[in-house]
Amino acid sequence: MRVVTAALAIATGIIVLLGYFFPPLEPLRLTLVNWAIAIAGMAVLVGIFNLVAVQMEKIRSRQKGSVYGAVLVISLAATFVFGALVWGPENFYLRLLVVEAIIVPVEAALMAILAVTLIYASIRLLRRRVDVMSVVFLAVALLFLFLVVPTPFGPVPGDQALLQFLGMFSRGGARGLLIGIALGTLLTGLRVLFGVDRPYGGN
């Protein structure tokens, strides 16, 4: 069975890949990709069941933090009942209650915590690792911040020229990193295509 799974996965991958280069294979490629999208959509629904099952196990075995799990399961059930069965997903009050009153403020709060966390990590960087690159990293980050934040006295003189000058280095570095990542992506894809890595199971 595992051999069949691998053969199917490899054949599908090769057809989809060749579909980009040979136009006659294009319709087949699109059909296969559409199937994959439909399956991925279904996977979200099953994934939510997984999320609930993990939280229920936490609650049942009275693990640490299980009270948050209970809140999650109750909220999920309430949103599902009101959103899918009672009011409908487009109901104004439901959206106001769930999205505007809970999700947006919570995510905004996390964003604010993230800002503080990043500042804290930057401060600790020199305690963790004192080398030339860390000092350059921190100095450039601070300089960029100084140049882009609004000041009471208006823009810093020459800020655009300096940003453009510094951007030249950061763009070059970013392109170098992205080229490396693209090569890694290519090789990882080929390994899966050859069946060396099998994330879909099997030894």
């Binding site: 990043l118 990590a121 690792r129 170098g176 890694g184 992506t185």
Partner: peptide
């Protein structure tokens, strides 16, 4: 880079 002891940069992820 800012928060780990030995950061992995770029394609080192795929290594």
């Amino acid at each position: 880079y800012a928060s780990s002891q030995e950061p992995l940069i770029g394609e080192e992820l795929f290594a």
